[in-house]
Nucleic acid binder design. Structure first.
Length: 860
RNA sequence: GGGGACGUGGCGGAAUGGUAGACGCAGCGGCCUUAAAAGCCGCAGCCGCAAGGCGUGUGGGUUCGAGUCCCACCGUCCCUACCA
């Protein structure tokens, strides 16, 4: 009997699928559509286990939906712009374009080997001019709509690499690559007006019922809507230039206005900069900017302040004057960059007030506190209570006082109730080569002018050098020199490129027709959008998933799309982890160099070559730096693709991390071989001559029909590990009815079981499923077969085993007909000897019979 | 500081409020084999010879019945943050 040989079998079926072009999706397919998408990968050049897990998950669903009769769209592309290509260029002298396309070519192969049911005819990379050219087109459309603008902004500037860094790329105040101390610089940058959609993006979350609650909460917090008051404080005496109207602050606690003891402005507030002609102020601002931005530094940062000498008048009590300070903890880019400090009811303000001996006046009295001796010591009181020491607000609740204060301020013309968001507009300019060029021409006379439609795409020049840091586009001899589309004068192209998150914020809509002459083929997008199921890592919970939602809404308003939300269902999968190994000197060791032995029950790891004992470390995300990476290709080679797919789907719930282990994939491989053995053992002419009077045959048929529902269910509910467990369980049952020496009735039942099994394993192990289907002599390929339908009569039990409990403790069990009458069951239970033994000396108070479930006897 | 998730055997994990530990890994015993590997059959929460008892982080509560629901606490992990 031939052992299953995945190395021979798997490529044969991939070829059969490709030859029959089974995964090509037609736009005019009349069946109900199902669009499944995995977050497209960055083409690093290597497939990793995370990809295997991500794409297998999507493929399981895709193949299942296909079998269920859907027209499934399952496309694939490459998120191909970005820094690694430029880093490679700088480090190795290769061209980013060549490097990227080589990587794509290198990764396409293992992705195809994975056997996913992808329509490769729709493949594209974001660095294809055809793609980014269309991106430029909609960028200009949004510019025209007023959703794109330019302004000066403070950025993280790496003086060695000569580029802007994202906040995430600044580690302890230094550039993550150059290790240079990052400077704050003011640069003119392009922004997308995502804040225009802040409310829509929050409201839209409510419609995303098939998104994880966690992601919705993260987005809501990120957008950070708060209700408050913008309030202008008039200066006491002469106001500084430009601030004759006063100094505007934002607060969410207008109820505590009577507790205000100072105003504070951010070090980069215009007023602070105006005062910087005073060297004391200039020095202080410098001191504030020196502070790091790391978590630890912010946590431990001391509150620093400088009294400007200016003072303002309290809006409710003109007799009271408050000093204006510059404080390091006030941020310019939230609210108005200025606050009023109420130390009694805000911890930061309290810390500041204690340090600089400013007054602390409690104005909120906790409900059970005595006004005579309520004091705020080291901790600010932020709870509910009644307002006191507050003139017209005395006696109000916090909520009442907030409303009253806003009304009074508005009546005085000194401010307005306001909604403020934490969300900022999206800065999309990058001083980088390997990105989508921003299609703008700067003209001395006309200002920034859009590149005319007929001149699109603005294509990146290939002849660039990376031998000096900085943006090669800026020093390219000719590329940026053009004439102004508006007046014809000499002008310069914008040399900044777009943030790569722009590229990934609309690709899903482009898949509907990747070669359309407009950004989005509306008819095709109307057919396929929204994505029914999106799958990816939770690390994109805020950035990518928020940007994609924003761009979708913006493009809808532009008339390019009909849907407001791009992803109807979202699933965030866990990571693939592996044990780590280190030598005594701390060097990380690759798993392939480690051997194991068991010494007195303890696992000991040794270096393969030398036998040197090494330390088994934590289980962590596979990463190059810790060398705990297992390459999928090597696993495919040894165990076959199906075993690898099966293992990543079976070992852990998909939203949790899965630990890659050799033993685990070996277990999956054993299952593959055992399944095959059952098909091999089945005689060719078994047929479907069912004889339900044969008890064994009937039992097997029941098991078969009981399997179908739960496996499908596990896929629908993203409980793949449970579904796989059901399949394992079923195989164990099937093995109890061997073909050798079986009756015709059992052989027929086995035949049915195998025909069902081949279709149920197909989403998980598609190559094996084809081989099994072929072995059974079925026509066509299993990839085109329908999902099996369970016979309800066979799937339902006709008898049930009921546990009998006495006072909640299990004391026996009872086999009765399904749906048996409660009274009869109760009598049987009480009469059962194993039960009555435990009832001796007790009085039965009550008997609960839950039909077909359980019997509980209450006795004492 | 704010928000969220999770806590079940040696391990990964199952379990619409209804027999806790499915399934897999590791382990143990047996068969096969000259032997090993592979494969196959079986055992297996803990204590106990057994009868039986105890068991889902801890303590309470709701319920005929709680891993599951509620409250408090402990622990672990993740996200976020001088956000006014």
């Amino acid at each position: 009997m031939a052992r299953y040989n995945p190395k021979e079998t798997e490529p044969r079926w991939r070829k059969a699928w490709a030859d029959a072009d089974v995964f090509r999706t037609a736009d005019d397919d009349p069946r109900p559509k199902y669009y499944i998408l995995e977050m497209f990968p960055y083409p690093s050049g290597r497939m990793h286990m995370g990809h295997v897990r991500n794409y297998t998950m999507g493929d399981v669903v895709a193949r299942y939906k296909r079998a269920q009769g859907h027209a499934v769209l399952h496309p694939m592309g490459w998120d191909a712009f970005g820094m690694p290509a430029e880093n490679a260029a700088m480090e190795r002298g290769v061209h980013p374009k060549g490097w990227t396309y080589d990587n794509i070519a290198a990764m396409r192969e293992p992705f195809k080997v994975l056997g996913t049911s992808i329509d490769w005819s729709r493949e594209f990379a974001t660095c294809d001019p055809e793609y980014y050219g269309q991106q430029q087109r909609w960028f200009l459309a949004l510019l025209k709509r007023g959703l794109v603008y330019r302004r000066e902004a403070t950025v993280n500037w790496d003086p060695v690499d000569m580029t802007v860094l994202a906040n995430e790329q600044v580690i302890d105040g230094r550039g993550w690559r150059s290790d240079a101390i990052v400077e704050k610089r003011k640069l003119t940058q392009w922004f997308l007006r995502i804040t225009d959609y802040a409310d829509d993006l929050i409201e839209g979350l409510k419609t995303l019922e098939r998104w994880p609650e966690k992601v919705r909460i993260m987005q809501e917090n990120w957008i950070g809507r708060s209700q408050g008051l913008r309030l202008t404080w008039k200066f006491d005496g002469t106001a500084p230039a430009g601030l004759e109207g006063g100094l505007e602050v934002y607060t969410t606690r207008p109820d505590t206005l009577y507790g205000a003891s100072f105003l504070a402005i951010a070090p980069d507030h215009p007023l602070a900069e105006q005062l910087a002609s005073d060297p004391r102020v200039a020095d202080f601002i410098k001191l504030c900017r020196a502070g790091g931005t790391s978590e630890a530094e912010i946590e431990g940062a001391e509150k620093l302040g400088l009294d400007t000498g200016l003072s303002v008048v309290h809006p409710f009590d003109p007799q009271r004057k408050l000093p204006v300070w510059i404080a390091n903890f006030v941020l310019m880019d939230y609210g108005t960059g200025a606050i009023f400090g109420c130390p009694a009811h805000d911890q930061r303000d309290l810390d500041f007030a204690r340090k600089y001996a400013l007054p602390v006046t409690p104005v909120v009295l906790p409900n059970d506190a005595d006004p005579a001796d309520f004091k705020v010591a080291a901790e600010a009181y932020v709870g509910p209570g009644r307002i006191f020491n507050s003139g017209f607000m005395d006696g109000m609740t916090v909520e009442q006082a907030k409303a009253a204060a806003v009304t009074r301020v508005e009546a005085q013309g000194q401010g307005k109730g306001a909604t403020v968001y934490r969300l900022r507009d999206w800065g999309v300019s990058r001083q980088r080569y390997w990105g989508c060029p921003i299609p703008i021409i700067h003209c001395a006379a006309c200002g920034p002018v859009s590149v005319p439609d007929e001149q699109l795409p603005v294509v990146l020049p290939d002849d660039v050098s990376f031998d000096v840091p900085g943006n090669p586009l800026l020093r390219h001899p000719t590329w940026k020199n053009v004439s102004c589309p508006s007046c014809g004068a000499d002008a310069q192209r914008e040399t900044d490129t777009l943030d790569t998150f722009v590229d990934s914020s609309w690709y899903f809509a482009r898949f509907a027709n990747p070669h359309a002459a407009t950004p989005i083929d509306k008819a095709a997008a109307d057919k396929w959008m929204p994505v029914d199921q999106y799958i990816g890592g939770v690390e994109h919970a805020v950035l990518h998933l928020l940007y994609a939602r924003f761009i979708t809404r913006a493009l809808k308003d532009e008339g390019m799309l009909s849907v407001a939300e791009p992803f109807d269902g979202l699933f965030t999968q866990g990571m693939v982890t592996h044990e780590t190994y280190r030598r005594q000197d701390g060097d990380w060791i690759e798993p392939s160099n480690v051997t194991f032995e068991t010494d007195a029950g303890v696992r000991v790891a040794r270096l393969a070559e030398t036998g040197e004992q090494i330390t088994i470390g934590d289980i962590e995300k596979m990463s190059k730096s810790k060398k705990n990476v297992v390459a999928p290709e090597g696993i495919f080679e040894i165990y076959g693709v199906d075993a690898a797919r099966l293992f990543v789907m079976s070992d852990s719930p998909p939203e949790r991390d899965v630990e890659w282990t050799n033993a685990g994939v070996e277990g999956a491989s054993r299952f593959v071989h055992r399944v095959w053995a059952e098909f091999e053992n089945q005689p060719a002419n078994a047929g479907h001559a069912f004889d339900d009077s044969d008890e064994a045959a009937l039992a097997l048929r029941r098991a078969t029909h009981k399997l179908i529902g739960p496996v499908g269910d596990s896929i629908e509910r993203f409980r793949f590990n449970s579904g796989v467990a059901k399949l394992y369980e079923f195989l164990n049952i099937l093995k109890a009815y061997p073909a050798a020496g079986a009756s015709n009735a059992v052989l027929a039942a086995r035949q049915e079981a195998l025909e069902v099994l081949a279709r149920l394993i197909n989403p998980f192990t598609p190559h094996l499923a084809e081989a099994c289907w072929e072995k059974l002599g079925m026509t066509g390929m299993v990839v085109d077969a329908d999902w099996p339908k369970a016979d309800a009569a066979l799937a339902a039990d006709n008898e049930v085993t009921l546990p009998v409990q006495i006072n909640g403790k299990r004391r026996g069990e009872l086999v009765v007909a399904k749906g048996a009458d409660s009274k009869a069951v109760e009598a049987l239970a009480l009469a059962d000897p194993s039960v009555s033994v435990h009832l001796a000396g007790l009085t039965v108070r009550k008997v609960i019979v839950v039909q077909d479930r359980i019997i509980n006897i209450v006795a004492n």
